[in-house]
Amino acid sequence: MAFTITIGPAELSIGDVYAVLFDKLGIGAAELSAIREGIVWELRLPRTLLAAICGAGLAVCGAIMQSLLRNPLADPFVLGISSGASTGAVIVAVLGVGGGLVSLSTGALAGALVSFGLVLLLAAGAGGGAAKVVLAGVAGTQLFSALTSFIVLSSADAERTRGILFWLLGSLAGASWTDVTVTALVCAAGFVLCWWRHSALDAFTFGSSAAATLGIAVGRTRLLLLVVTALMTAVLVSAAGAIGFVGLVLPHAARFLVGPRHSRLLPVCAVLGAVLLVWVDALARTVFAPQEVPVGVVTALIGVPAFALLLFRTRSTA
């Protein structure tokens, strides 16, 4: 983070960047124009912080979902949250719901929560259980993906379609201090709660029956952790769009480094996720400058080969 905030198309030296930071912290004074100060303090720093928070949060949520559902292919979006957020975003951006008073992030958050609520109802109606939650998530994902496609194809012009597509692929371009504050508070609270239940997560990796034998209230604990994970994911998606592969690949990489115990796994996931997404965002905004690449595209390009490598390593050690 300390290095990536110095990267960008604007002609600012490392000394200029840190002069602004020290000035804002009350140490020294920056002799730069207001525009250059704004580039550092209002654009680069919030974006880098949001990248770190999103990476950490998505990686932690992925590890929790893989444990709760006992599915190595589970990720934070398996509950249909990203597709619901996409629908909420296009309803605001394309259909103009809210009359300009509702932001795209607010619409995305509302859509994510509605989608998660529907998935919970479907799973409860089907009798609960990890497998039913996954199936309900697939159904919710398909439903809201279809709604998003229908709205975009029937109502959006070319310019709006391009803007929505950029957001759907994941983008940190609109990062603000409000986004940083909200996501940091929600993710910090969610991480503490999930880490506090790390022994329950360890038990869930052996199945619901084993967890119940160890005295864990399976239904209540699973619901609590699912709700916390869904809220974290919904807030992150509303701020940055659907950034894929972070929550799928990094938990496996973290397990390879420190093993399956969640007391160590969750902090390592957070660190790996933060480091990865900070560097991915730096690549996304500089490699093809002045054209910016959606962050989700870069994570997919990196994540697919990394996931394939992990699969081959797992096969070779099996």
Rank of each mutant, 00 (worst) to 15 (best):
L266F: 11
G26V: 06
G15S: 03
I164W: 07
V133T: 05
V92W: 02
L104M: 14
V218Y: 04
G111R: 01
S13P: 00
V40L: 03
G8I: 03
G98K: 05
A211R: 03
V227K: 07
A89K: 00
A203T: 06
I81W: 07
A253P: 07
S86V: 05
A108I: 02
H198D: 11
L310I: 14
A51Y: 08
F77I: 05
I164A: 13
R313C: 05
G111S: 08
Q291I: 12
S155G: 11
T178Y: 07
T178K: 05
G244K: 04
L58G: 02
L113G: 02
V298F: 00
A184E: 02
A242L: 09
H252W: 12
T317R: 14
H262I: 10
A253K: 08
R70K: 12
A270S: 12
A19M: 14
A89C: 03
G88E: 02
S82R: 00
T213Q: 15
V298C: 06
I91L: 14
F116V: 03
L226I: 02
D75H: 12
V246P: 04
L95V: 14
T229W: 06
L153Q: 14
R222L: 00
L43H: 04
V102I: 10
L201Q: 10
I64G: 01
F116T: 05
M1L: 10
G163L: 13
N71W: 05
L283D: 06
L121F: 14
V102A: 07
A126I: 04
L226A: 03
T141A: 12
I91Q: 04
S155E: 15
A29E: 13
L231P: 01
E11F: 10
F245S: 03
P72L: 07
